[in-house]
Every structure is written in C-alpha cells, then in structure tokens.
Simulated scan of single mutants.
Amino acid sequence: MRCTAPLTLALVAGVTALDFSQSHDTNSSVWSAVAKAPASASSSQLLSSRLWNRPSKRQTGWSPPSNLANALQEVWNHCMSTYSNFWGFKNYGWDQIHATGGKINVCVRWESSATITEAQRAQVASVYAAQYQKWFSWLYGYDNFPYSKIDVNVVGWAVRDKSLLQGSTAGITVYTDTDSEGAPQCSEACGRFFHQDGNYNSCPGGASAHYDQSLWLTDGWSGGAGGDWGQRIGREYFIGSLGSSNVHILLHEMGHTFGLDDFYDWLPTGQTNFIMNAGSATVITDFDGWMLRNWWNGLSRYRGWQ
C-alpha cells in the first residue's frame, strides 16, 4: 500500500479507486519467482502456526512471539511513516467488516468473453471465501476480535453479456454496467466504495443487495492488484487455480485490502519468505498473520472498537 503514489484503477466514468498494491504486483515476472519458493509451509512453520495461530485461550493486547517482534515493529513504523493518511483513511477492509457486522459481500467483474457454468461460479465463490478464511483464522479468538466467523458471499456478477453465465443465476444480481474503459462493472449504486456512508437507497434491493468488494477477473492479466475496492487477478490464473488450496496472488492482494504493505524496496530484519513479499511464498506465514494482527490491535483501539 502506497497512498503517497498510488496506482489508480478506473471503476466507472469519472471515478478512480485508490490501489493499495504497488505497480510491481502487475508484473508477471515478480510472481514467477515463487517457483523458487517453498510450495507449502515447512514443518517448523506448521508447528509455529499451531502454537500461535489459534490461541488456546483468548489473548488481549500485543504479544507477538519474540523472534518476530522486532521485524513487526519495523513494518508498523514503516507503514506509519509512509502511508499518507494512515489513521484517517476509512475504507480499509477492517472498516468494511465493522460496518456490516462481520460480513463481506463480493461482486465478480468477469472481464472476459468466455462462458462460465453455474458449477464453476459456485467454485469461484467457495475458493474465494476459503482464501479469506486463511487470513481471518489469525483473528478469530484474538485480542477481542468480535467475530467467530466472517461470512464471505458472492452476491453479484458483472458481465458483457448475460448469456456468458450458463445455468441458473438465482440468488445473484447480474450487472451489464461498464466502467469508463468498457470493462464490466458492478453497479455503482450498490458499491461500498461509492457509498462509504452506508446509504444504498439508490441500489435496487437496498443495503441487503450491496457489495463491499469486487473480485475483478481479467483475460490475460498478469500479476494482480488490490485495495479497498477489492482485488484484480488474471481470469485464466484464477480459474486454473480453483483446485488449489492456496491461490497465492489472491492471498497477497487480499492482504492489501486489509492494509498490509508491499516489500519491493525493503525487507524487515530476518524475514524473507512471506506472502506479502510478492513471489517469495505461496502460503500465509506466521509473519503475515502477525502483521494482520498488528493492524487489528492498533486500528481497533484507534477507532474505539474495543
């Protein structure tokens, strides 16, 4: 996340969104390096995850493991000094789940001429939600986090033509809106990014039909992008990853939605392989999880949520 020099992404005519990821995320060569990284967590990482990920009793306050504490402080200090509106920005993923009481509604932007079956759409929703749960498992039961389960639901699809959605579309809203560049766009009237005051009176169906984030799947897109508006990754990459446990580019971009930074120009002491260091890991590591916890610990107190 670099609020001082953001990459902007067009959503609808005349509107741009702040992109929390650096432009390097869109470079496919960054992600090809992950082939040299471990495909899964090591046994020591898994043991550490069992010890630290889901506390046996509820913890309050900031109590990271000693081998990560200094590096975590370096990251926090770096974010505080480089984000242009660290505390004042009010649309982090944290703000979104606070507003909804622990839910994330997602609209898929299908920037493709390919058809997609009803079964594939169900897989998209399931795999997307599973990736978010990998992050949220670090929060359940930790430091007065108020939710034991954050529901992640796909509530809409934006397409060039409704015929691309094969089978029944019951239970979702289908949009044929486009942004200023002609890409399929979920309705502005129903989007959290456009209505951060929570007023969805102009959305057909009202607040219950709103979406908080977009999953933007684009043909031929290399790499990814992420921010308060959601995540953008390649359509072919994501559909090809539906059988995978860890969709690592998506995991990285989801981290940006919740404020986590990139590490293209520096690394914290003693840390080299973790999901937010693009191309260095395919799983959320202990260090990633504790960075997320650091955000909850700091932001929840500043916002008065605990």
Rank of each mutant, 00 (worst) to 15 (best):
N294C: 02
Y211L: 04
T218E: 05
T257R: 01
Y132K: 11
L9E: 07
V15P: 00
Y83D: 15
G191C: 02
I249L: 07
V75N: 11
T176E: 11
V75S: 10
S43L: 08
A41Y: 00
I172G: 05
R192I: 00
I104E: 01
F86P: 04
D151Y: 11
S81A: 15
Q231F: 05
K57F: 13
N27R: 11
Q166P: 07
Y200C: 04
Q271W: 03
A281R: 15
N277M: 09
M276T: 11
R2M: 09
T82K: 13
L215F: 12
D95A: 06
Q131D: 09
I104T: 01
W87I: 02
A17Y: 04
D262S: 14
Q131Y: 09
S300R: 13
D265R: 08
S56C: 06
A130K: 15
S42C: 01
V154G: 11
Q306S: 14
G198E: 04
R192P: 01
C203L: 07
D151F: 10
W290T: 04
G298Q: 13
D197F: 03
E181K: 09
D179G: 15
D262E: 12
T117W: 06
A189T: 05
T272M: 11
L260I: 14
P204V: 01
I104R: 05
D212M: 09
T16Y: 02
S49N: 12
S244P: 02
C203D: 03
V154R: 11
W216F: 15
Q73N: 12
W295Q: 09
K57Q: 14
A207T: 12
Q59R: 13
D261N: 15
R58W: 06
S280A: 15
L267P: 00
W305H: 13
T272L: 13
L46F: 00
A39F: 11
L260W: 08
G304P: 11
C79H: 14
D288K: 08
D151L: 13
C3Y: 10
V34K: 05
N85Q: 09
A189M: 03
E253Y: 11
R50M: 11
H98S: 05
D262Y: 12
I172F: 06
S202Y: 03
N199I: 03
L11M: 10
C3H: 06
G102D: 01
T16I: 00
L215M: 11
A69H: 10
W157N: 10
E181D: 12
C186V: 03
V247W: 04
S48V: 04
G61K: 12
Y200T: 02
L292C: 05
C203N: 05
I104C: 01
H24Q: 14
